[in-house]
Amino acid sequence: MSAAEDRLPPLRRSSGSVGRIALIVLGIVLALLLLVAPLAVIFAEAFSKGVAYYARNIVQADTLHAIWLTVLTAIVVVPVNIGFGIAAAWAVTKFRFPGKKLLIALIELPFSVSPIVAGVIYILLYGANGLLGPLLADHDIRLMFAVPGIFLVSLFVTSPFVAREIIPLMQSQGSDDEEAATSLGAGFWQTFFRVTLPNIKWALLYGAVLCNARVMGEFGAVSVVSGNVRGETNTLPLHIELLYHDYNAVGAFAAATTLTVLALVTLGIKTLIEAKGGGDPHRPRH
């Protein structure tokens, strides 16, 4: 088939070239306007009063703490949601059981709930005046307006990312490979680590990257439950907003650059892992 396609004459090159160039130009212009320009503005504003001023803003204790808290949240939330995503996808794709459709809908629920609403729900449940508030207070557990609350809402908001990526893949792959592995004598974990996981690893990686990006950038839900205590419960997005409202534009943009760098690091790690899988013929090609 591809050989036949190769032999096809360059169809409608003369008439198509104008449209093609137009599309390419449009693509470049949009990318510049929507992606590159905002990035450039962030860095330009951050460095507008010089490198020293920028560095002073970054090493501020509150900013450093916000960076740490953001990274910590990702370290806690992403692995949990990878585990949740795999377990949920496994359950709905490898087994037949009543209520399966409902479970799939539930997994996607956080996508359709506004993050602010999610945050409010958590306050109503776990807050001091919430449903479980007295119980938690009795045991001296404080979830809301504290770091655990940030973890909880971040978990909620980003829980569908991994599952959403791997469910369609696992559905299309069916259970044949797992059945084959079992018939060859492999146990549950052997089947999982040697067969299932390699089959879904690229989708899993992509889901984890999306999950990570959302955790680090989440504003709405976190702003409801964090309480915005500087140096204690402020994540980077919240910290950026605070600085901006303090009329410290340079500080806000400086903090924003760190968030940008975190995103770029995530992308870099993803690219590196994919490059290491270069010999794998099932590596996704872009």
Partner: peptide, 10 residues
Amino acid sequence: FQHYALFRHM
């Protein structure tokens, strides 16, 4: 298996 179910990453 009908569609062989070979492990594609091996």
